[in-house]
Structure formats: structure tokens, C-alpha cells
Design a protein around this nucleic acid. Structure first.
Lengths: 257, 257
DNA sequence: GGTTTTTGCGTTCAGCCGCCAGCATCCTGC
DNA sequence: GCAGGATGCTGGCGGCTGAACGCAAAAACC
């Protein structure tokens, strides 16, 4: 029995049972309790466990803030809430188009238990997220990789998306404004998104609260072209009356403003 | 027993059993423990294992730490060597087609300093690797995501690849055999690779030494259809004479057999 | 044949583990 | 609420085994 191996096994047990007891581990591995305590010390120092009296408990906190996805943390609960709402709108066997956004990735996580979905996307992150689901049809548009984005754009992307007819589009954007409509960071993206809108029967806009009253460079479409809006927090009265007036259903999570 | 071969076997054992013990490996391979330690050292440096007292345990961590599970595989120096050799064959401004493989990812790293390359690929990993290079044209074939692979396949992938005419193809495979030719794991992949061959003027096979005399399920092509072979270690006399006979240049790294 | 790489040997060094003593913490009974 | 016993923690010590290092021999490469 290797020291490192024992440490891994303790960690596994910890993850299964959320806690471990020094005395149990001692007899389980046939080593002294001091040794176990030293192992737990290390796990504690590595931030994987929290040592207490008589044993240790799992440090759950650590699973979420992985070193890399720092930027994705921005308004994670909001995106999570949106994802849950969207998941209720999608049925087994649906054909959906998804654009590139961190919200879209959250939505994919929330859709994992659905069956026989067909997903069409130009987002590399969405593809990566979906590599290990089974029974789905996952289609990547072709296209040119946009520098510093994990997204495919250009005429080839537009052309390939245009050849599909999907049930639903999950659309994201950089800004939504009463006067300027729905806008995105650049023309490449907005052109692809326009193609997506032409290829989907129902267009669902998934935006978190930070996008309201923002204007970005390139217009995707006017607001009434959207069939439904899903967001995390209740929009202002102004927005709600606008949506009501244009008969656009608007779903949102709990908390006010 | 080749050093690299031994290292690969250790890695396999490591992946099977999650841990290896220095003393065991020493008697298993009939080499001294220091030699084993040096091997484990390399595996540790490559991030594949974590060396500890008395042995090493598998490093599962790297599946999670990257934004996407870019799993590194065995024989990293071999792939590195191949990548360096390939880099010398590629000129600024070239149009190249790249298929999905870990070797291809290594090659992309080695090509980073080139200018104005056009890369056409169906590999998601290659796309991710290239998101932050500037001045290149990076084109993704469309297609269906193959479950558990980060690769696009199917008629759409084939169709879009067929619409290009590239200078060079960097081809990988699962097996190369004198009788059975060049083979890959499944039909989906080999069909796409055949399309790639039709779309490229020069076909360069990039394979590490472990692929020689291996036969996989689905044939990609006969060996003479390849224009050049690049590998990490000097192939056997049998292979060298075969290549000479068919006038296929063969580049390789240092060590014997 | 000269050079580079790989391997093995022997010495020195460092990490792992168990034991023990002293201290901190928890628990029970009153 | 508190006292005293029980249990667990900390730190030091020593034995042991594996690790690191330098050097030299051998193999392989050009």
C-alpha cells in the first residue's frame, strides 16, 4: 500500500460518504491513527477536506471554483436559473439551435437528462460540453473559427445552419434595448444569429439581467421578432409592460429587480 | 525492451490499476529500480502520473483542470518529436488539413510561430488549441459530433472537406501494417479521412512508433497512397526498405528501433 | 571512433511510519 | 454548570525503506 494510494482512497471515501473517521480508516488500512491523521492533514492543506475532531469532512466548496473557469463565474446563479427555466420548455426529441454563450453551456448541463435531442450549434464550448451525452444528435455548423472566441462564423456557418429547420432557438446576446433592439458584439456573430432565427420555429431569448438596457455594436433583430424571453430576475415594470404589449411571454426566476 | 516501450507499458499498467510500485516494476521489466524511477519521473513531468514514495499513482486530475478535458495520452515525447519534424515541412501561408488526434494537437503547438496558415479540421481539440493564434484562417468542417470523441464526422463533414483544395494533409491513424495498409478505429473516421486525402495535394502520415504493425477495424487507404511518413523513432529495416521501394520519404527522430 | 543516451551501482539523504508523552477537547454524571 | 475521565491531537524520536545524486560502464547512434 502506497502512501499516495492510501491518500487517494481516503479522498474517494470522503467524496462518497462526505466524511471519514480516523479510527475506521486506521483499521481499514491497517496503519496507525497517527498516520491517518497525517494523511488528513495533507488533504486539509490541499483544501480538499476539512479536518475536525475524530475525522474529516469533504470540502465541497472547492469543486465549484476551479482555477480556469473564472470568467464563467460571472452571474453563475443567474445563468443556472435561466437554464432551469429553459429546460422546462424543451421536450424529449426536440430539435434545437444553440448559439455560443456561457449561458448556453449552463443550459446544456440542465438538459442532460432529456432524451433524443438534436442540437445544432456553432459553439465549440457547447460541443465539448456534449461529447459524453448519448443518444443525442449533435451537429456542428462548419465555419471559420473566430479569433479568441470558441465560435464558428462566416458564410459557411450561415449556409450550414440555413439548411436546417429546428423547433427552437436558444438565443443569447450582448444587449437588449427598447429602442435599439437586440444587439451583439460584432457583425459576424449577428449574421450567424440571424440565420439561426430563420431556421427555427420558436425563438427563445435567454439573457441574464445584466443585458437589459445595454446596446452593443451590431443589431441581431428587433425585439418583437423574438417569441419568448427567459431571464433570471424580474425585469422592470417598463420591460414587463413592453413584453405584455407585444405579447411576448417572459419567464424569470425569483428575486426582485 | 525499448525505453519508450517500457514507459508506455508502465503507463498502461498505471491506467489499469491506478497505481504502480517501483519494486514490482523493477522485477517485472528486469531493470534496476533507479531506471523505473527515472521513467516515473518523466511520466510525472508530463503530468500523467504523480510520483510518490514507493511508486506512483495515476493523475486523474488533468481531466478536470483544463477548460475542456484535453486528455493527454501516452508517448508525449514521441509526439513532440513528430511535431518538430512536421513543423519543418510546413511553410508560411500553407493550407493544411488536420485530422483529430493527440499528435495533431502537438503539431499545432509546434506550428504556432508560422504565419498566415490556413487550417481545415474536424477536430474540436485542434480548434480549441488554435483559438488564440492570430492571423491564421481556421476552418472547421461541420458535421455530427461523434460520441465520446472530440471529432466531427458524417456526410456533412465529408461534404465540407471536399469543397477545399489544400496543400498538405497531416494524417494520423490507429494502425499501419504492410498487408492491411493504413487503418482506423471506425468507418466514420476513415471515411472523413478519405475525403481529406482527396482534398490535399501532399499526404503526410504522422504516426508514432506504437502504430506500426497494428491493424485497426476500418481501412483508410493503402500505404503507397501516402506521400510521406513522419514518425518518432527509426522504423525497422523491413519498413525502411518498404518505404524506399515505394519511394516514400520517411522522417524520424533519434533513437534506434 | 567519438558522441550521446541509457542503465546500474554505491553512498548519502529524506520521507514515512509507529511509539510515546504531554496537552486539548469532548462527554458524562452529578 | 462543573469536575473528572475518556478520547483524540500534537510533536519529537528513531528505525527503516525508498529516493536522489554522481559516476562509470555499456549500448546505440552518426
Amino acid at each position: 500500500m502506497l502512501a499516495a494510494e492510501r491518500k487517494n482512497l481516503i479522498l474517494e471515501k470522503l467524496q462518497d460518504e462526505k466524511k471519514v473517521v480516523v479510527s475506521e480508516l486506521s483499521v481499514l488500512f491497517g496503519v496507525s491513527e497517527e498516520t491517518i491523521r497525517r494523511d488528513l492533514d495533507k488533504l486539509d492543506k490541499e483544501g480538499l477536506a476539512v479536518k475536525g475532531y475524530g475525522g474529516a469532512v469533504l470540502n465541497e466548496n472547492n469543486n465549484l471554483d476551479m482555477p480556469f473557469h473564472v470568467r464563467k463565474k460571472k452571474n453563475m446563479e443567474g445563468k443556472q436559473k435561466i437554464a432551469e427555466l429553459i429546460a422546462e420548455l424543451i421536450g424529449d426529441g426536440d430539435h434545437i439551435i444553440v448559439d455560443p454563450s456561457t449561458t448556453a453551456v449552463s443550459i446544456m448541463k440542465a438538459l442532460r437528462h432529456k432524451k433524443r435531442l438534436t442540437v445544432i450549434t456553432n459553439s465549440i464550448e457547447v460541443l465539448v460540453e456534449l461529447t459524453d451525452v448519448s443518444g443525442w444528435d449533435i451537429i456542428s455548423s462548419g465555419g471559420t473559427l473566430r479569433e479568441n472566441y470558441l465560435a464558428l462564423v462566416g458564410p459557411r456557418a450561415i449556409e450550414s445552419i440555413s439548411s436546417f429547420n429546428a423547433d427552437k432557438l436558444i438565443l443569447s446576446c450582448k444587449g437588449i434595448d427598447l429602442k435599439k433592439g437586440i444587439t451583439d458584439a460584432n457583425e459576424m456573430f449577428s449574421q450567424v444569429k440571424q440565420a439561426m432565427m430563420r431556421s427555427a420555429a420558436q425563438k427563445i431569448l435567454a439573457v441574464d439581467c445584466t443585458k437589459f438596457n445595454q446596446v452593443a455594436f451590431s443589431r441581431i433583430c428587433e425585439i418583437p421578432e423574438i417569441d419568448m424571453v427567459v431571464t433570471d430576475v424580474k425585469p422592470s415594470a417598463e420591460w414587463l409592460s413592453y413584453f405584455a404589449e407585444h405579447k411576448i411571454p417572459c419567464l424569470y426566476g425569483r428575486q426582485e429587480k
